Simulated scan of single mutants.
Amino acid sequence: MAPKRALITGITGQDGSYLAEFLLARGYEVIGMVRRSSTVNFERIRHIQDKITLVSGDLLDEVSLIHILREHRPHEVYNLAAQSFVQTSWPQPVFTGETTALGVTRLLDAVRIVDPEIRFYQASSSEMFGKVVEVPQKETTPFYPRSPYGVAKVYGHWITVNYRESYGMHATSGILFNHESPRRGLEFVTRKISHGVARIKLGLDEELRLGNLEARRDWGFAGDYVEAMWLMLQQDQPEDYVIATGETHSVREFCELAFGYVGLDYRDYVVIDQRFMRPAEVDLLIGDASKARQKLGWQPRTTFPELVQMMVEADLQLVKEQMR
């Protein structure tokens, strides 16, 4: 039997790289879509680059998406590409809308035109809940986004539901709560902390500037979460699922653990900087993933302290190599 083929948009990102590894281990042919730009970063997929097929395409250009689908005929499409940094969505709201919202429509429409039997995964986000109206948040919790990014993700989510209901497509949204790893971008607070801790421990920096230490998030390990994406597309019926740990921790707790891991007290190094405060903050996110547990048999394997330790260890290693 010929292997299954999967197209991953955003393959050079954190989730794309873990998902590509996961699918390769299951015998898939993996096609990764990358945007033509002068600064494409293949760092996260370098170790598997010879095992995947990279193709040029853009969520802003539906014709390029149709060409890719026609040429490679994937059985599954995972849409992980987006302008995915919340902070950037305020100074760049239109671009965020074009990629994170309308980009989903272009890709869904390309699937509908080329082969509506393709199974489609949309990366929805806990940021859609924003100013939460209930705790914890589940699939039926109303959305109240608090950033242009969150608003764009709500559009992407509902257009996925709409194509599923309008055209009978196997289109699913995974509402993933914060998921981190050593492959997280340096602009994200968790990685900023783990990298900052490594630089301070190794004598390169003396302080770490952060915004709101009281913001609370439901943090899991990205490597655990990509399995849930795959499981969603193996179901007979397409449905939406919340993926989360069900635990909440503050940025302050993350700092405490990360600095504590290298024998330091975060209070000696962390400086609150108003530049990193958001215009509208999301204070508390915590997910209820009981539907995913019951229907998909999925649960997170990595604990919060294990995640923090993994990230600090990786950044200590990285910074040491850079110092050589």
Results as ranks from 00 to 15, higher is better:
2 A>Y: 02
5 R>K: 14
13 G>H: 01
14 Q>F: 01
18 Y>P: 09
22 F>Y: 15
31 I>H: 06
34 V>T: 15
38 S>V: 15
42 F>Q: 05
46 R>F: 06
54 L>V: 05
55 V>L: 08
55 V>S: 08
60 L>C: 08
60 L>Q: 09
67 H>Y: 03
74 P>Q: 08
76 E>Q: 06
81 A>N: 08
83 Q>Y: 05
87 Q>S: 11
91 P>I: 03
92 Q>R: 03
95 F>A: 13
99 T>S: 09
101 A>Y: 06
103 G>H: 08
114 V>M: 13
116 P>Q: 02
119 R>Y: 05
120 F>T: 07
122 Q>C: 12
127 E>R: 01
131 K>C: 12
140 T>I: 12
146 R>K: 12
152 A>P: 13
154 V>T: 15
162 N>I: 00
165 E>Q: 14
167 Y>G: 03
172 T>A: 14
189 V>C: 10
195 H>W: 10
212 N>S: 10
213 L>G: 01
213 L>H: 01
214 E>M: 07
215 A>L: 14
216 R>H: 06
217 R>N: 01
224 D>E: 08
224 D>S: 10
233 L>I: 01
239 E>D: 14
242 V>P: 03
246 G>D: 05
253 E>A: 03
259 F>T: 04
270 V>E: 08
271 V>H: 04
272 I>L: 02
278 R>Y: 06
280 A>F: 08
285 L>W: 09
286 I>D: 03
291 K>W: 01
294 Q>G: 06
312 V>H: 11
312 V>I: 01
315 D>R: 07
321 E>A: 13
